[in-house]
Write a protein that binds this DNA or RNA. Structure first.
Length: 435
RNA sequence: GCUCCUGUAGUGUAGUGGCCUAUCAUGCAGCCCUGUCACGGCUGCGACCCGGGUUCAAAUCCCGGCAGGGGCGCCA
């Protein structure tokens, strides 16, 4: 186990707080129980060194409490009889695992292995694992199967975003921005309900609390489904995740709250969101923002400062369905009869927001090969580059829908983290690609 | 690509021209105390990002470089 903290000095007794993945424990070391050399080791070893301690578990002596106050519940400790040092930690450490002083993000990320030993950071990544676990469980219970799509792709598949170019033997290739086209092809192949949890790469030079250049996307695609059908899948899944965390993982939440309270922040409370989430269509959202006295027109993007207006009314999860077709990618489905009051073509694309922040983008997909081809032409993409994709729709295609959810953003919402870098082990941003 | 801000011991900070031989906390080292438990006490160690300029005097003002951060744009 690691040494968390030891008392100082050369006396006849010594206490060391030990830690491993299962929790922490005090070791009681007393002259006579161990050799003098072992006592010396225990008293002088640096923090974060690793020990192997043999001994008996015994009830701790209760701490002194002021007159009249109740004794705390009994605690246990290990009374050491043998101490072996496994690895001495160098000093000074670049950041203190148990120190009260704050640490800058950069120092933390440069020394993530130490940062992760901090209790609340550790809890954050255990929660991340739980989110993925509960999300998987839920989708599997609804008949979904997990797939893996290629991350090395041949062409700038969808336009819109910048891709990272790579060398693929003698050819140029790119890192995938999304599993979109491949999960659709899987559905064309009668896998019917699929999901993927995998990396997506975007070569955008953004620099905000919610963007990274590599992130894990939680994607689903579902045959014989509409935008509304997959929104329901999503709200059930999120509700399931929250509900499982609330009943199984309160101790991890407590670890985070212990830190938040020391920082004088509000503790987080896991409130299982009620279903259905509000639906605020794009047209309604624009109207709502206009009513706040902000100048915005139908067809404009809802930017972060606009979403602040929506967040005043909808502070938690809400869907924004039916975006203008012109603002959505070519593979989103549209119905010619669905238009705005001003006559603009609507689509079956939707977003899921939490307050001001976008969590998900999704929609019903275009399954008509001829419309897909026309959509590509409309956005100045060459249909020939997409033969591998459109071919999949030529031989009978089911209507289908899906979405992609940012795992790190969901974890931010759950844990109240203010920066997506908090929720990713080794984040990749504009300036950082190490460690 | 635009814009604003910041670089002080291992870490987090105080400091806006002389009171800086640079504050405090944490850490580290030594000593003392100790069935401690956020242990405590004493002593010590350790820093002004780099280069140039202004000035009698620069951590502090100016210029350049480097590094970092916030926001915007962009972003399925």
């Amino acid at each position: 186990m690691w040494i968390c903290r030891s008392n100082r000095g050369k006396g006849a007794v010594c206490f060391i707080k030990l830690r491993d993945g299962t929790g922490s424990l005090q070791a009681f070391i007393k002259k006579g129980n161990v050799s003098d050399e072992e006592l010396e080791i225990a008293q002088t070893a640096s923090r974060e060194s690793t020990f192997q301690i043999t001994g008996e578990i015994a009830k701790k002596r209760p701490p002194k409490v002021p007159e009249g106050e109740p004794l705390p519940p009994p605690e246990y400790e290990i009374v050491a009889s043998k101490i072996i040092i496994l690895s001495l930690a160098e000093t000074p450490m670049p950041l203190g695992v148990t120190d009260k002083v704050e640490v800058g993000m950069d120092v933390r990320l440069d020394n993530r292995f130490l940062d992760l030993r901090r209790k609340h950071i550790n809890a954050m990544f255990k929660l991340r694992s739980r989110i993925l676990q509960y999300g998987r469980e839920h989708l599997i219970s609804e008949g979904f199967g997990e797939i893996n799509s290629p991350k090395i792709i041949a062409a700038a598949a969808e336009g819109g975003t910048n891709l990272f170019p790579i060398k693929y033997f003698d050819r140029d290739a790119y890192l995938s921005q999304s599993p979109q086209l491949y999960k659709q092809l899987a559905v064309m192949g009668n896998l019917e309900r699929v999901f993927e949890i995998g990396p997506a790469f975007r070569a955008e030079k953004h620099d905000t609390y919610r963007h990274l250049n590599e992130f894990i996307s939680f994607d689903i695609e579902m045959a014989w489904a509409s935008d509304e059908d997959v929104m329901q899948v999503q709200e059930r899944m999120i509700s399931h995740i929250w509900s499982e965390i609330k009943s199984n993982d309160q101790s991890l939440i407590d670890d985070i709250n212990e830190f938040r309270v020391s920082e004088e922040k509000e503790p987080i409370v896991v409130n299982v969101p009620s279903i259905p989430f509000p639906r605020v269509s794009y047209c309604e959202a624009i109207e709502l923002i206009q009513n706040k006295g902000i100048e915005i027109n139908w067809g404009d993007d809802i930017e972060a400062h606009h979403a602040d207006m929506l967040a005043e009314k909808y502070s938690e999860f809400y869907f924004i369905p039916k975006w203008p077709m012109a603002m959505k990618p070519f593979y989103i489905f549209h119905d010619k009869n669905e238009t705005s009051a001003t006559g603009g073509q609507l689509s079956r694309g939707f977003d899921l927001n939490y307050g001001r922040d976008e969590m998900t983008s999704g929609g019903q997909r275009e399954h008509r090969a001829d419309v897909l081809t026309q959509n590509l032409i409309d956005v100045d993409l060459n249909p020939d580059d997409f033969d591998f994709y459109i071919d999949g729709f030529r031989y009978g295609a089911p209507p289908h829908a899906g979405w992609g959810l940012g795992v790190a953003r969901l974890l931010m919402v759950l844990t109240g983290a203010g920066n997506v870098r908090e929720t990713v082990l080794f984040p990749r941003d504009r300036r950082r690609c190490t460690p």
